[in-house]
């Protein structure tokens, strides 16, 4: 569980990035944090694993305050996937890269080897390959795999699909969804609203360092005021459903709209 208690944060004394942010994310949730560039989303993520310490208020990971616990200690509970995988990758082979996170966990070598082998097979990697010689999408998958390997309770994703093609994007999101279904809390920052609607169950909208909407994706994307304040466009399917109105107003997917049309035709 992650809790923000009246958190304010600024990098310089004159500009406040986050102001009185107060919310909590329960175990097993799939949360998307959305907002325009500079709204404070990435700062929020860095506060969640203690890379940044709040100027005012407190951030808790379960019952551990990020003020008093080091990020390297919190890493056992919180895994953070950065936008740029090249900052994370530092080993000579993909297998070494996936095993890297175990260095600080003091587990038996046989257990580590078995987990690494499972992950390599699951993602379809060539374990002996140099991680820097593969495509951008593959490197992003390697970075994600090395986080998944150590099985943190919470996985934070900072724009995980940037620079990926649709197939790679779906592959990463399916992996993340599978983890969420087994109880891992997923928190992601994403600019692709279609993707957010497809995968996230809860959406937090951030604008000018404050939370202006927080609820399920279905409600939040229909909150015109929040969308306009945060300079966001809702997913096209929501726009279409809202424009059509009536029975269509509650539809979130193409299938739902098609079903309504078919039902009407039949009548």
């Amino acid at each position: 569980m992650i809790t923000f208690k009246d958190v304010s944060f600024s990098y310089t004394p004159t500009v406040t990035i986050l102001r009185d942010v107060d919310f909590s994310i329960e175990r097993g949730e799939f949360v998307a944090i959305v907002g325009s560039n500079g709204a404070g989303k990435s700062t929020m993520l860095r506060l969640m694993n203690g890379l940044l310490k709040p100027g005012v208020g407190e951030v808790f990971v379960d019952d551990l305050s990020t003020h008093t616990n080091k990020t390297s200690k919190l890493a056992k509970r919180v895994g953070l996937l950065f936008q740029n995988p090249d900052r994370q990758i530092c080993c000579n082979t993909i297998a070494e890269e996936i095993a890297f996170g175990f260095k600080n966990l003091e587990l038996p070598q046989e257990e580590i080897d078995a987990t690494v082998a499972d992950i390599i097979e699951d993602f379809g990697f060539d374990g002996a390959r140099d991680p820097f010689s593969v495509s951008r999408g593959e490197r992003q998958k390697i970075a994600l795999a090395s986080i998944i390997a150590v099985a943190p309770e919470i996985i934070i994703l900072d724009e995980p699909t940037t620079g990926l093609d649709y197939r790679e994007c779906i592959h990463i999101m399916d992996k993340v969804t599978a983890l969420n279904e087994t109880g891992t809390t997923i928190i992601m920052v994403c600019h692709d609203m279609e993707l957010v609607l497809d995968y996230a169950k809860r959406v937090i909208v951030v604008a000018a360092g404050q939370i202006i909407a927080d609820g399920n994706a279905h409600e939040v994307f229909r909150d015109t005021f929040a969308m306009q304040t945060a300079s966001l466009l809702p997913p096209q399917i929501i726009e279409l459903a809202t424009e059509l109105g009536g029975q269509f107003e509650q539809a979130d997917t193409v299938e739902q709209i098609v079903d309504i049309v078919k039902a009407r035709k039949a009548v």
């Binding site: 080091k70 890493a75 996170g101």
Partner: peptide
């Protein structure tokens, strides 16, 4: 920052330990 998030102790106060940890980062 990325390595600290993976559990590497860059947030240690021991300067010699920190220097030892920096060396593998020359690759990225």
């Amino acid at each position: 920052e990325a390595q600290t998030s993976r559990g590497v102790e860059f947030d240690t106060k021991n300067i010699f330990k920190k220097l030892g940890l920096i060396l593998p980062l020359c690759v990225p």
